[in-house]
Amino acid sequence: MFTALFYALAAIGLVASFIADREKTAGALYKAWSAFSGILPEFVMIITASGLILAYLSPDVIAVLIGERSGAVGVLLASLAGSVTLIPGFVAFPLAALLLEKGAGILQIGAFVSALMMVGVVTFSLERKTFGTRVAVTRNVLAWVFSLLVALVLRLVLGGAGAGVALLGGIG
């Protein structure tokens, strides 16, 4: 649905741009293409690497690692698993729901989803090219710390829904 909206926006933009100035429109398309083809190798690399990682970190493996009773260690593992994987958005949440079904804990899922979205190990080289090494490293480390924090806040909000989901209990 959002994709359709973006196609509509791009189409309207292109038509308006074409009416206003053909040369500029050609320039815009050229820039779009050169930006895309410029990072296409990185895209392919990212997609291949994440496909390989996911082949080994299957839902069953992840669910075992980050089960309800896995506690703080599970949260840590979940955030690491989320960091190294890259999953298309429309697959990520059905996957998260599947992991819950397979026995993953909700806090662990919170850490997993947060790291999945904010931390990018496979996209790191592209990020470094854009922002420089220090920014890319710092952003990813901070985002990773926040993925752990999310689990903590989820525990506070969702409460002690059961002894099994005790994050702090896992520590103490």
Binding site: A10, A28, V91
Partner: peptide
């Protein structure tokens, strides 16, 4: 990889067209 490539091919073109328009 197939799923991801499909996502890339389906979702990304308008994003880059908008990027080009923004740039120009």
């Amino acid at each position: 990889i197939g799923t991801s490539l499909r996502e890339m091919i389906l979702v990304i073109p308008p994003v880059f067209v908008l990027l080009g328009l923004l740039d120009v």
